[in-house]
Design a protein around this nucleic acid. Structure first.
Lengths: 217, 217
DNA sequence: TGAAAAAAATACTGGCCAGTATATCCTTTT
DNA sequence: AAAAGGATATACTGGCCAGTATTTTTTTCA
């Protein structure tokens, strides 16, 4: 990967600022990719920046030219963890759907997919958020609240439309969030269950919680 | 508390071994009680034994006369986290119940109660288990597997008895486990929702997942 | 090509912290 | 009352690690 990086850098002309910043983005991505895996495995506080650097084939001061400090790396990871989920949620909500039941199913499917694909980021986000600086913590929390709020709203509208059982209350949004968030603690890629199975079952479970039957595929 | 401790100790006669060991147990309990709260708040790796000692009004070497090292304190916390849940599960399973639906409801209610009451222990157990020594890790994991297995068995029997929807598959045990385990990440005592509300809604949700209606109270 | 600039490495520091060696205090026993 | 033993504190150590100062290597471009 270091060889590729070198080659790419060579191709960056001085007059081409955008390519250069893309390259910086590429390196920051590599850093948080490796860091998220290590933080996931051994925990933020136990994982040293020397570990991260070693895994990347660079040295610690290298990291400091891309991130202000260790906490900034954590913040970047947390941001991926929540903002990608938020992005697919909003994209799905913006699309067209027959009814609320189908919309909920699709939302759960898409978010579930992200949570599985970005397992390390999501778990680090959930587990280590408390180590963020006050500013970062607040920023991330705002994203989270937006996420929760939109899910709750979807449920509320579905109840109003009579598509979910009317004794379904606002708790259901929390339970569905729990279903999704809990996946990374037991699902491991390459285990007995395929990601597709897990997601199918997740959708079924979410619809049952909402009191809506599984849509006929 | 230290004053109480002193008085109690004075009452321990040399000829009364059982009282003395009870007193040791009392102190080890106080230690893991405080440690679980601090590990819960700031994470195992970030929390120092000096912090724990200070919170207890003692000094670090004091802790070392009750626990071999930091990891042993973590192991004790994890053990409470899982073994109390396992204990109420088994006690509930051992009792008499009309049918599988009521039994599932009661199990979920009891385990949910423990998870809320022992929030700090449960979260530390979930989050920090990877920092246990190989031996402790294996011991704790055995308890967890026993728990999971008994829940899965209960679901299987309920399906067989025709009390849960037959298209309910073994995944449901995992989803119900997720519902319960996720509670501590969003429930906080003294918030808007009372523990009793949460538990009632939890039971409803679990029964929906299993495809069994809520029992008429 | 070679001077300047940029990127990355080596080498270091200061503080923190798990764990321990030693001292003190308090209780029990005679 | 004083020696013995147990409980707890004080004082220390060695290693680790985030963050930095300095040097070396690589790239740029005149």
């Amino acid at each position: 990967m270091s060889a590729v990086a070198r080659k790419t850098r060579r191709a960056v002309g001085a007059d081409n600022v955008s390519l250069k910043s893309e390259f910086v983005a590429f390196k920051t991505n590599r850093i948080i990719e490796v860091a998220s895996r290590l933080f996931y495995q051994s925990g933020y506080s136990s994982c040293t920046l020397d570990n991260v650097a070693e895994q990347l084939g660079v040295t610690k001061p290298f990291l400091y030219s891309y991130f202000k400090n260790k906490e900034a790396i954590l913040a970047a990871i947390c941001e991926v963890g929540i903002s990608e989920a938020l992005a697919v949620l909003e994209a799905t909500l913006a699309g067209d759907h027959k009814n609320h039941r189908d919309l909920l199913a699709e939302v759960v499917r898409q978010v579930g997919r992200i949570v599985i694909d970005r397992q390390e980021y999501v778990v680090v986000y959930q587990r280590e958020m408390k180590h963020l600086s006050a500013d970062d913590h607040e920023r991330i929390l705002r994203l989270r609240h937006s996420f929760d709020h939109q899910i709750a709203e979807l449920i509320r509208e579905g109840i109003e439309a009579g598509e979910f059982r009317e004794d379904t209350d606002s708790f259901v949004a929390v339970w569905i969030g729990g279903l999704i968030s809990w996946i990374p603690t037991w699902y491991s890629p390459g285990g007995q269950r395929s990601a597709d199975d897990v997601i199918d079952q997740l959708v079924t479970a979410a619809l049952r919680l909402a009191g809506a039957e599984k849509p006929t595929n």
